[in-house]
Amino acid sequence: MHGEYKVPGGKLVVVDLGVVDNRITDFRLAGDFFLEPDDALEAINAAVNGLPADCDAAAYSAAVAGALPAGATLLGFTPDSVAIAIRRSLAKASGWRDYEWSLVHAKAVTPAMHLALDEVLAAEVGEGLRQPTLRIWEWDESAVVIGSFQSLRNEVDPEGAARFGYDVVRRISGGGAMMMEKGAVITYSLYVPAELVQGMSFADSYAFLDEWVIEALRSLGIDASYKPLNDITSPTGKIGGAAQKRFGNGGVLHHVTMSYDMDGDVMTQVLRIGREKLSDKGIASAAKRVDPLRTQTGLSRAEIIERMKETFTSLYGATPGDITETEYAAAAELVEGKFSRPEWTARVP
């Protein structure tokens, strides 16, 4: 069995192994990481050989850590990343390059339609009806998108939302509320097979699926990094956040919203939770917690998106794609029957 794991911001970890009578055999660790002293590699191999093939990642990580000689130095990887590679090999996980990727940057639609398309396209990937896809969102109206399990009245000030022209919609993934001003955010969705993140915890999969956008931002001179669980950040503030939904048919939805520009005063009048967070941190303005991309680059939103598309394509070989009329029709039915209905938006009052 063969498993690979590219450490977000680090190096590639590769494992090869066999399994006999539920025990790992012939284990070999490799990769482009740095490890000192040299004999630490054989110590890791010996520690993993003979372990049960049904251990969790924590057990494999502990075995690797326990085998390291005193003073060993690991650069670009950790015992945890070895454990993830082992779990991915045992689960027969796939890699980015195992798929033909579609890159969709389609016309602007309503916020509710975007959420419905997320459900339709992720389900299709799970059913094998659509190839794995990166979709860049475009919209020409503003919205507050709340997480699947958030309380509507605790998160949104309805008077503030109405005053500034913000629609309020609820997505199918968890996480926090996002104030999405038209033209002032960059949002994308990934629709992937569960095999791509097989063997990873939810926390590990977040960073894994967004490593490409970190690379794209850094290529523009932005000091971006991933902050667990689901934040893309910089030394001066949060850039954006991710959310995820896994479907029973094997599809995975992973979407991210990053701030391109923002008005902190409007944010505190539209989002109630924003006021609480700001108060707790003793910060007078939302702008001090968020670090919009425009202030870091001076580039237009379109230019940043173009670099994102170029980076994803160069890394994974994506080709331009689109949304079919059948998919739009299925999403429109979901808007009518779910995402535009008060029963859904206020399902957690």
Rank of each mutant, 00 (worst) to 15 (best):
T297K: 03
T236E: 14
F149C: 08
D263L: 05
L299H: 11
Q150L: 03
H255N: 10
I304N: 03
L253A: 07
M178G: 04
V335A: 13
A53K: 14
T187L: 06
A106C: 12
F312R: 04
F164S: 10
R153C: 10
G321Y: 13
A242H: 07
D140W: 03
L103V: 15
V252P: 01
G66Q: 10
N230Y: 00
W96Q: 02
E124K: 08
D98G: 03
I214W: 09
M178S: 09
G298S: 03
E141G: 03
Y60S: 11
V145F: 01
D231H: 04
A70N: 14
A67V: 05
T187I: 14
L229A: 04
P292T: 06
P342I: 00
G298F: 04
L90T: 08
S205G: 00
G241S: 01
V197R: 00
M200G: 06
P111V: 00
R88G: 02
H255M: 15
V270P: 00
P52Q: 01
E211F: 14
G221K: 00
D210A: 15
P37E: 03
V156F: 00
V185F: 09
I222R: 09
R301I: 05
G240T: 12
V48A: 07
A122W: 09
T297Q: 09
R289K: 14
R289M: 15
A224H: 10
F34K: 04
Q296M: 12
H114D: 06
A85E: 03
K107M: 13
L315M: 15
Y328N: 14
I84R: 00
A108F: 09
A40V: 08
P158K: 05
D80M: 08
E181D: 12
A57P: 13
F77E: 04
G160S: 11
M267E: 08
Y188G: 01
A284M: 07
N45W: 09
I214A: 11
P8C: 07
S234H: 10
S259P: 08
A216V: 13
A122M: 13
E343P: 08
S300R: 11
A57V: 14
L334A: 06
G126T: 02
R171K: 01
S102W: 03
V213N: 06
V156G: 00
A224M: 06
